[in-house]
């Protein structure tokens, strides 16, 4: 609150500032604790230990892959939701948003029932081609896509809606087909939203734990991503767990800063 507001409307009441301060402290103290207890002296060693390194590498590879998959398939879905009208569109949107509120472990169970050895798609896949997805690196990517895709679709759909349909109409009057309009007008105008969506999507994939451990398991080097490694290391090598947590915190802060920058520059153009 600015000082002039204090002067004109009086001080904020204690009944509000006290709970507000408590809430803020509750959010800040745990993160501060990680920073305080971080093994700063051995940080490099902790992170370059084979298990930590494997987890870092696997997380990087899988999250980049799942983000690419989300962008490739999520943008068309966002376009359909923003630019076409069809029966049951609100149902489609509800299904897209469901993984946002679904407990990730339930997502993992659902993926097993669909793509597991005896899953409704997994069994025919196994029978016909001998392809088994669960407990592979591919399963890690699938789990990440399942939880992260909604972030991309929702922010890109928002960007498509915000840039408006009128530029699309202008493009049509200039002879551009819908595909050409999408490529040359709709997508470039929504680009900041696509970047924001991709960053959010990647951040969510990086933190994915519940669906991954349920559907992909916990095999070092193939399915043990950073969050899983943190959880396991906490038992016998807490320093390594804290070091990895620190990496995830830094990544989150960077993502937040990037999005803020993106958001601000998006407003100024």
């Amino acid at each position: 609150m600015s000082s002039s507001a204090v002067r004109t409307r009086g001080r904020a009441p204690l009944g509000l500032t006290l709970p507000a301060a408590t809430a803020l402290a509750f959010l800040v103290i745990p993160v501060a604790a990680v920073l305080i207890r971080a093994p700063w002296g051995t940080l490099v060693d902790d992170l370059s230990a084979p298990e930590a390194r494997d987890a870092l590498r696997l997380s990087l590879v899988t999250t980049v892959t799942s983000t690419v998959v989300c962008v490739a398939f999520g943008i068309p879905l966002a376009w359909l939701l923003a630019r076409t009208s069809f029966r049951g569109r609100s149902l489609v949107r509800a299904m897209v948003t469901l993984p946002l509120v679904l407990p990730p472990v339930v997502g993992g169970v659902a993926l097993l029932l669909a793509f597991g050895r005896n899953g409704i798609l997994g069994k025919p896949l196994d029978d016909a081609f001998g392809i088994s997805l669960p407990f592979t690196t591919a399963a890690v990517v699938m789990a990440q896509v399942f939880v992260a895709l909604p972030f991309l679709v929702i922010s890109v759909e928002g960007a498509f809606r915000a840039s408006g349909e009128r530029y699309d109409e202008a493009a049509a009057t200039l002879g551009a087909s819908r595909w050409s309009t999408f490529r040359r007008v709709t997508l470039p105008l929504a680009f900041p939203g696509v970047v924001a969506g991709a960053v959010l999507c990647w951040a969510r994939a990086l933190g994915e734990f519940g669906a991954t451990i349920t559907f992909a398991g916990n095999f070092p080097g193939t399915t043990r991503t950073m969050p899983t490694q943190v959880y396991l290391a906490l038992q016998d090598d807490p320093d390594s767990a804290i070091a990895l947590s620190l990496v995830l915190i830094v990544v989150s802060v960077v993502v937040l800063a990037l999005l803020r920058e993106r958001w601000l520059s998006g407003l100024s153009t």
């Binding site: 493009a171 049509a172 009057t173 002879g175």
Partner: peptide, 8 residues
């Protein structure tokens, strides 16, 4: 629209 040849 894009096949009409109508400028706007």
């Amino acid at each position: 629209t894009h096949e009409r040849g109508v400028g706007f």
